[in-house]
């Protein structure tokens, strides 16, 4: 899933400082799963903003709603009748949501309330980590099931570098050295040949380096 994190309150307060009436829009997709922008988080942010503005003696009116998804035009349409009623629309989806909303309603002023962080998964309650960089050409089966592009700080295809110690990355002791995991797993499986083979240069055209990407499925087009 896409993992996001709510922006610091001060940054959001600054965004809405001149607004009297705003709409906070959550999303029931990934950001609900990672506890960043679902119905619950919309409610918390709304209550926090109301309180902060009351303290400043400058009350703000906030409406709340959560859409099925914000990355699909059909679910955005529901805002049609309401978009014009607010000084600001604050989206709690990943950055796709506020982009969709502001494109659909060019008059509206739309702000992102989240920072979209990475594609990853939960590791334990309250902990998420990056697993994928969407390079567009998955090769994890050559690396013991781990992705060195996303999970090695240097994206080495022929790692590890000389900086790993005790299975941790030199960049941060909180980061597992993915090459440590790859090597240990493949050695245990007796697949040393996979490790000694020089992995060729990566073709980055399927990644962001080839320009913004698009998938067209003719079989699904109406």
């Amino acid at each position: 899933m896409i993992v996001g994190e709510r922006k610091p309150l001060d940054e959001i307060l600054e965004m809405v400082k001149d607004a009297k009436k705003i709409l906070i829009v959550g999303c029931k997709g990934c950001v609900t799963v990672c506890n960043a922008g679902g119905t619950k988080e919309v409610g918390i942010l709304a209550a926090t903003l109301r309180l902060a503005r009351l303290k400043e003696d400058n009350p703000i009116e906030i409406d709340e709603m959560t859409l099925e998804r914000q990355c699909d035009p059909e679910y955005i349409e529901i805002l049609e009748e309401r978009a014009a009623n607010y000084d600001i629309i604050l989206s709690m989806a990943c950055s796709i949501g506020p982009q969709y909303i502001s494109e659909k309603f060019p008059e509206a002023i739309v702000y992102p309330a989240l920072n979209t962080c990475f594609m990853g998964g939960a590791q334990e309650h309250g902990v998420w980590a990056e697993f994928c960089q969407a390079c567009g050409d998955c090769k994890i089966h050559l690396f013991g099931g781990y992705c060195p592009i996303a999970r090695c700080s240097k994206s080495l295809l022929n790692g590890p570098c000389g900086g790993s110690a005790d299975g941790k990355c030199e960049v941060d002791k909180e980061i597992d050295c993915v090459w440590h995991l790859i090597v240990n797993k493949l050695m245990k499986q007796g697949k040393l040949d996979q490790l000694t083979q020089v992995k060729p240069l990566k073709n980055w055209t399927t990644s962001r380096d080839g320009g913004p990407r698009k998938i067209v499925r003719e079989d699904l087009k109406i």
Partner: peptide, 17 residues
């Protein structure tokens, strides 16, 4: 550097390169 057992194979890989 860790993992020590792999280090010599990494040298072999550099030679292969």
């Amino acid at each position: 550097a860790d993992p020590f057992e792999y280090r010599v194979y990494r040298l072999a890989k550099k030679i292969a390169a």
